[in-house]
């Protein structure tokens, strides 16, 4: 009994070790986003609160927490309050299977990849329920857009993952990383280049980020699904969106960019040093690069028109993934890509 209690407490401690840094990362990610987009648009960005504006995210969080949560008249109270929680839960739960390094993984399960796919597809429920429960036309329009978009891009995302499965030969995320051993050109981004690009596009669409942010579309439908939300409830939606972005970035790093593996593996001079050996730092660095790309896209692309989003998803991305899944299968059969070499 004592053993079990200890095990339970240890697991909870490990969960906290993942979620607490995640929340702090989200806070500074918002700061980073404003700074990056600011400098891309030749502005300064936040600079008043604390040194270099570093305390800006905390000022924002406290402002949101102290504000009143307004329940719209005729809104469905229970679902209205539940929706942000439903949006946040899968964004955090998916981190259970992410391998930070060879040994640092909370749940090293065999079905890790489909677990992640299941949880990323759940995040749309928060949006749909929020849109419906708000009893507002704009919110509802945003929810409907988000539902159709997520279901469409899930397919191309799933096919991109199938390509990884074929070359990796396993659903276990840790073993997928191990299958990419051997330096930067052995990672899956090279043989699966089209799928890599499509995975990043679908990731943008799944997280409702610019240029696919029609669920919010502030110039068309005010703020979309969270137009009626204020205070802490709005903050939770914000947290969920950014946690999802970080999740997709880390998944891209794991699936296509060799996870914790070093890009200089096998370079003789570096050998046993930090640069030559795989470690959690490489994983974090790669995740940071993909996180930066999310901001880069937002600053440089105009928002897609809704019908063109659907066309891109169904008529462009899905056929490409279908073809490249077959190419990947051929590469695996002909031995062009040997895993773990």
């Amino acid at each position: 009994m004592l053993d079990m209690l200890f095990y339970l407490l240890w697991t909870i401690a490990k969960i906290l070790m993942i979620t607490v840094p995640l929340i702090i990362t989200v806070a500074f990610y918002t700061y980073f986003e404003r700074k990056v987009i600011g400098s891309m648009q030749i502005r300064v960005g936040p600079s008043r609160v604390g040194p270099l504006g570093l305390l800006q995210p905390f000022a924002d969080v406290f402002k949101l927490l102290l504000k009143e949560i307004i329940l719209p008249a005729n809104a469905n109270r229970f679902l209205f309050v539940l929706a942000p929680v439903i949006a946040l839960a899968p964004a955090f739960a998916a981190w259970a299977v992410i391998p930070f390094s060879d040994l640092l993984v909370l749940a090293d399960i065999d079905a890790g990849l489909i677990y992640v796919l299941a949880l990323t597809s759940l995040s749309v429920y928060g949006v749909i329920i929020a849109g419906w429960a708000s009893n507002s036309k704009y919110a509802f329009l945003g929810a409907m857009r988000s539902a159709a978009q997520t279901v469409s891009y899930e397919i191309s995302m799933g096919f991109a993952l199938v390509g990884v499965l074929i070359l990796g030969g396993t659903l276990n995320l840790r073993e997928i990383v191990l299958a990419q051993q051997g330096g930067i050109f052995d990672w899956f981004w090279l043989p699966l280049l089209p799928l890599f690009v499509i995975y990043m596009i679908s990731g943008l669409a799944e997280t409702n980020r610019a240029p696919f942010d029609v669920a919010e579309g502030e110039s068309e439908i005010v703020a979309g699904f969270h137009v009626e939300y204020s205070g802490a409830a709005f903050a939770v939606f914000f947290l969920a969106e950014y946690a999802n972005m970080i999740l997709i970035s880390s998944l891209t790093a794991v699936l296509f960019a060799g996870g914790w593996l070093s890009p200089f593996e096998g370079v003789p001079v570096l050998g046993e040093t930090l640069l030559g050996e795989g470690s959690i730092f490489w994983f974090l660095a790669k995740t940071a690069v993909f996180m930066f790309m999310f901001l880069w896209y937002r600053a440089t692309f105009p928002r897609y028109r809704y019908d063109q989003i659907m066309r891109l998803g169904w008529k462009v991305l899905i056929p490409i993934t279908l073809v490249w899944v077959m190419v990947a299968a051929l590469m695996a059969v002909l031995g062009l890509v040997v895993k773990g070499s």
């Binding site: 299941a118 759940l122 429920y125 509802f140 409907m144 159709a148």
Partner: peptide, 18 residues
């Protein structure tokens, strides 16, 4: 969860809410 919750029920909700 992937098939029924992630795809089928989303479309169900889509229709039912409308």
């Amino acid at each position: 969860v992937v098939v029924y919750v992630g795809a089928v029920m989303v479309l169900f909700l889509f229709v039912v809410m409308m």
